[in-house]
């Protein structure tokens, strides 16, 4: 579904991604792991068109590289950014509305999303910056799901969350798999997400160094020590 080939990108004179190739398939969770600074978040930004890339980023055969950043979510890729990046002064309902209007979705989509996060339904008129950390993460995911994405990118979704909240997010991700969404998960905490993954892509020095099926990875596999340092 989502295919990157020979992607290089960076910030000014600094190149972060170096000829990276990567794929995410429909109905699968692909987990991206690697040490700090290997380019995981830059990869997310490159897919979203937020930084200039050379190489190919294709979604279902359509080339996305070179599109203006605001066109990428309209094609069906949604991002839950690291640190949530909610529109803090806006209410919960308004944050969801931003997601809904992008792809022309309406009340049916909103209800479906709120069914996944019933707690948000009780807080629709609350200013989003006043939500708890876990609720903010729920809203960040809900806002992205309002786009009805074909590909969902989650950047460190469990950061700073308590176990019960991580479990709730896990349920949502597993539910998305069954609907055919390709989920790409960037995560440092191996234990939090490994059981969700179908495949794990290990990044190093701006490339995907190794991609392994989850079934072939034992909890203490050598790849974790080599590429993640745990």
């Amino acid at each position: 579904m989502l295919r990157l080939e020979g992607v290089s990108a960076g910030y000014g004179a600094v190149t972060v991604l170096r000829g990276l190739s990567f794929a995410a398939e429909a109905g699968e969770v692909t987990c991206i792991m690697g040490r700090n600074g290997v380019g995981k978040t830059t990869l997310m930004r490159a897919i979203m068109g937020q930084i200039a890339v050379s190489g190919s980023v294709r979604l279902g055969g359509e080339e996305l590289a070179g599109l203006p950043a605001h066109e990428v979510p309209r094609r069906g890729i949604a991002l839950v950014p690291q640190g949530r990046r909610l529109f803090g002064p806006l209410t919960v309902a308004e944050n969801l509305e931003i997601g809904l209007m992008t792809r022309g979705k309406g009340a049916v989509t909103r209800d479906r999303v709120l069914d996944l996060f019933p707690r948000l339904r009780e807080r629709l008129t609350q200013v989003s910056s006043t939500l708890s950390g876990g609720e903010q993460q729920m809203l960040a995911i809900a806002r992205a799901l309002c786009l009805e994405p074909k590909v969902l990118l989650l950047d460190e979704p469990t950061e700073g969350l308590q176990p019960s909240m991580i479990a709730a997010i896990r349920q949502v991700v597993l539910g998305l798999k069954t609907t055919g969404v390709a989920v790409v998960l960037v995560e440092q905490r191996v234990s939090a997400v490994l059981d969700m993954a179908d495949r794990v892509a290990f990044m190093d020095h701006g490339t995907v160094a190794e991609t392994v099926a989850r079934a072939d990875l034992a909890p203490g596999a050598a790849q974790f020590a080599t590429w993640v340092g745990v």
């Binding site: 937020q50 605001h70 979510p73 990046r85 529109f87 002064p89 806006l90 308004e94 992008t102 786009l147």
Partner: peptide, 17 residues
């Protein structure tokens, strides 16, 4: 709404189309 969202964070606004 678009103006207020853009005011908060223009990069995230772009990420939402």
């Amino acid at each position: 709404l678009l103006m207020r969202a853009t005011q908060v964070d223009r990069n995230t606004a772009r990420a939402f189309g």
